[in-house]
Amino acid sequence: MTLDATARELIERSRAALRPSADERARTAAALRERLGAEAFEPDVHRVSWPSAVKLTLSLCLIGPVAYWAFGSTHETPPPPVVATPQPPAAEAPVQEPPAALAVMAAPSGEPAPAPPPAAKPAARDTLSHEVVLLSRATSALRTGDLAAALRALDEHARRYPHGVLREERRAARAQALCGVGRFAEGRAELEGLPAQSPTAARAQQICRAADPAQR
């Protein structure tokens, strides 16, 4: 039994009506990218299977602290000393003080600026920005449960900035990702030596302990 031409035409038109338009495609993709992070759409990222209890624990506990490390703590971290170059006073008319964060960009009027340490400031800023980018990438991947992508970003951070400003945050996040994929010994090793009073380290320790069957 096949359908006659009239039924077939109705079905063809209905199929077309059920398909999304180009605008709908674009809007949905953009919204999802924003919601899940660009990493979710990387073509080679494959999901890692791991115990659902661990996943639940991580999804509940990681998002806040890691997001805080990657964004909040970075904003609150004082700029590296090379950035905070003292500015000479203005020659005559009072010049409105620029906000501290903009100080390095504002040339004082009147007198020539003292020679800055060559290339040190932009390099330090770029380094910190890149550290933040890598930690943010890891955070986003942790948030979506893609631990393989999180570990890749954290490994890249460790390779490029072994003594970086965000090294402690990296180690705590890495410990949690490692515990998430069942590499508990490596996770514990990452936690060793982190300051005990750090809430982020304490939280990482709790999560690893909850995930590690040997410690429960």
Partner: peptide, 21 residues
Amino acid sequence: KVPSFAAVYRQYFDFVWSTAR
């Protein structure tokens, strides 16, 4: 192997959309 989310999205977007509709 479980495909990546990106591959699933690409391959099944129309299916998901038209089925929901």
